[in-house]
Nucleic acid binder design. Sequence first.
DNA 1: GGAAATCGTTACTTTTTTGTCAAGATTGCA
DNA 2: TGCAATCTTGACAAAAAAGTAACGATTTCC
Lengths: 159, 159
Amino acid sequence: MKISAQEEYGLRCLVQLASLNEGESVTLPQMAEREGISTANAGKLMWLLNKAGFVQSTRGTKGGYLLARPANEIRLSEIIKVLDEDVIDNHCGSYTGVLDICVHKGDCGIRPVLVGLHEIVENALSQITLAQLVGGERKVDAMFHSIQGIHRTLEANRV
Amino acid sequence: MKISAQEEYGLRCLVQLASLNEGESVTLPQMAEREGISTANAGKLMWLLNKAGFVQSTRGTKGGYLLARPANEIRLSEIIKVLDEDVIDNHCGSYTGVLDICVHKGDCGIRPVLVGLHEIVENALSQITLAQLVGGERKVDAMFHSIQGIHRTLEANRV
DNA sequence: GGAAATCGTTACTTTTTTGTCAAGATTGCA
DNA sequence: TGCAATCTTGACAAAAAAGTAACGATTTCC
């Protein structure tokens, strides 16, 4: 499985915006430099995120980008769905809907795996907000403890 | 996030082999037909899986492929690591090791997310074996219950 | 009003991933 | 032995993703 470049850098740019103080904004060249990508590339990402309503832009001198919604109301799952098709998708067709592209109409051997992965990833990402990725170890630790909880549950439910 | 074609079809082919009765084997054309891919493509996948020691092949008339190890000892996480780099990887560098490609050497804002996702996916996939994907609703249900367990744990540990 | 800074949009290029082909090697069987 | 079935391997072609470039539109400030 791969996290696409678009997902990764899009998310990173949003974290930058979430870290701004009241009234500040960031320009494309600044953003690009901080993430190690080209300005053109950052521009394309921000265009997507702007269309989707995550960021607000102003043109001209003193222009730039800032978040259009409060950072603690933006869930990572939403972001990923805008930057890519879904939190996880596969080659053969959406396994959350009807599987009609694939040859395995009724008896797809790996479908339970796809559905299961989709569910746990969607769950995890929908519980993390941009605000939680800003400033610090405390929040990161909390997230990690949640993940350790998952670990224990899987052990207990071992099939 | 995407599951690559190679991961998806490679896994499907192995499920076919896991479904065989004692003494049976499957040829490339059969395998390709059942998965809706070309023989050439199936050939390349099986070549990879053969090199990695998952399958055994015999050439000539009556030849074909079969599993080289018991289906209940082959974990999905192992398979995915052979068909792709890792259960999850990102553009910027392995987040299980040192992050040296990325501009964010010490303070990568999304690193906790990458590490967390890697952990829960690795965990889930390492607890599912090929044998569990063969023959039926009972095993699939059991797996699903495990996933529901994860769901509840996440709720309980909400950050 | 004009110049400079900035975003917006589309088209294009490069790279990576997928998929195909063809020639070779091995085996079984008549 | 020789033919047919089968896997093996490397080179090639097509498609998708990632990245770049160019030009247009808007805003600020002098």
